[in-house]
């Protein structure tokens, strides 16, 4: 059964397929404190294991520089194996491009326009890290 935690800015679900799903809420801001809370929540759900993550950012409006740095920093890299970010607008594309090109995350990070492609990519990534995902069962 999937486990879920809701924070101020995201709904985070850890599915039986071993993939974390984060749905970003349309909050007016998204701060460093929110980023820290979301990463902690992810670590709780995955019990500290590094897992592939789908980030549904289609409703995202804004994110601070400090939050972006945290999401692409070493703390988040401890719980995230790879991130597939789903975007649905130019706003999402701008934010996604900044995350990839300016913040340069230390794990694979790619933008997608639909869920199927995002999940397919993460399944491939996880297969390549089969040892890390062994604990998902």
């Amino acid at each position: 059964m999937a486990k879920s935690i809701e924070t101020r800015t995201e709904i985070i679900t850890y599915g039986n397929d071993g993939i974390v799903r984060c749905s970003v809420k349309p909050t007016e801001d998204h701060t460093l404190a929110d980023a820290e809370e979301n990463v902690r929540a992810t670590a709780v759900l995955t019990e500290g294991r590094r897992m592939p993550l789908v980030l549904d950012a289609r409703q995202a409006k804004k994110i601070t520089r400090e939050a972006r740095e945290y999401y692409t920093g070493p703390k988040n890299a401890e719980v995230v194996m790879a991130t597939a970010m789903i975007i649905g607008s130019s706003v999402g594309k701008i934010i996604g491009n900044f995350l990839i090109r300016v913040n340069r995350p230390p794990f694979p990070f790619r933008l997608f326009s639909d869920e199927d492609s995002a999940y397919a990519w993460l399944v491939d990534i996880r297969a390549a890290h089969a040892d890390d995902a062994a604990g998902a069962r």
Binding site: R68, I94, I95, F98, V102
Partner: peptide, 9 residues
């Protein structure tokens, strides 16, 4: 809006 957000960032 995307342009505005990009400039702010």
């Amino acid at each position: 809006n995307a342009l505005a957000i990009g400039l702010n960032m």
